[in-house]
Design a protein around this nucleic acid. Sequence first.
DNA 1: ACCTGAACACCGTTCAAGT
DNA 2: ACCTGAACACCGTTCAAGT
Lengths: 224, 224
Amino acid sequence: MAKRIEPVALSRGLVLRSAVGLADAAGLESLTMRRLAEVLGVEAMSLYHHVANKEALLDGVVEVVMDEVAETVAGLDRPERDWRATMRMTVLAARGVMLRHPWAPGVFTTRGSASLPVVRYIDDIAGIMRRGGFTQDLIHRALHALGGRALGFAQELFEPGDAAGEGGVESLGPMAAMLPNLVAMLSEVVHDDPDSTLGWCDSQAEFEFGLDLILDGLERHRTA
Amino acid sequence: MAKRIEPVALSRGLVLRSAVGLADAAGLESLTMRRLAEVLGVEAMSLYHHVANKEALLDGVVEVVMDEVAETVAGLDRPERDWRATMRMTVLAARGVMLRHPWAPGVFTTRGSASLPVVRYIDDIAGIMRRGGFTQDLIHRALHALGGRALGFAQELFEPGDAAGEGGVESLGPMAAMLPNLVAMLSEVVHDDPDSTLGWCDSQAEFEFGLDLILDGLERHRTA
DNA sequence: ACCTGAACACCGTTCAAGT
DNA sequence: ACCTGAACACCGTTCAAGT
């Protein structure tokens, strides 16, 4: 499970990047100081010379992910004239990074106050809207309305696969009688979309639908 | 800190309600099997006779909170003819319950698959839309677009109070130069709303703005 | 059946000691 | 300056024993 690597010099950057790698490979619950040290071929206490404590480690992990987002966004060819297209492209790029680190939303939302890299990303988003002709007040409300969605977080109420994943609607089992509306909905929608590869529905399309709903609404407020 | 109560007979319901009370009073990080047992005046291992393990305890905690939501929703006088008003009223009622349990979103989003009480709530939401004339496909997409917001979760990217809480825009400090758009936005918006009691902005109004953006968008899809 | 106490395998973290 | 090993105060949980 834990593969030791050569005894390279430890550094904050290496510790943080290894933490991201460990969470990617083995899940967030595996990211402990002791396991991380083991991966780095070092004693747990050595980590404390590069990171104040576990909270600081998680702050650093957010930094690493946000650096990846910033790099991806920097590589985009945005049509700055069109605020809506630019925003859409930026948010979907951030989402692409988050899909590579499915545990990231769980860490971001426990981080109390926003770190510099997150705030810098939001500043970019605000700039897109400003150049698009938003008032400051509308920018403010837009940032709240987007919330985690600005970084590509979906916050679904349940994950694909539990209600109508393999077993179909029948797998709802004895509760089906209590859920007439969901049963009716699922029996129709699942049939409509039989070869969706991503589960009981294509969550990329669903994310974009929700994002567009908000962007459309903002555009209407902008021109009002 | 931990107040012992009389040695009443333990039961699953009492264990779960005490767990909610402990999280309310001392925060989610205080909700441990040992602390919960102490509050109940019992040994930690006694809890395992009423709850399989900590995961099951948290599932039960979700149940308790959802029961509170269901009770609140049942007491509403909904104008069923108007899907939009009914939906709005229902979601805001759920949000009212969540505001009493600020730790709840953090527990709900770690619950993997949806529990029966959550699914039953979603079924109600689906029913509102169905009676409002939604197609099954639009109901499906609407549920994804709402996500956690259907239960009143906001998922803000940062909490009020860290950027421009007490100290105002200046408290952004040395990073201000890197954040021209946010500085411009905050210096204007905070002035517009000087006596907001809830922090740097009124999050209830912000939540309703975001919710209305989605409901308006859905209404437009419905009539298209 | 319900509850207990000791024990185990983990955590994060402090501290004194090494180099 | 950086790393170590033992130790401490916590976790969740197993198990054998009590009533």
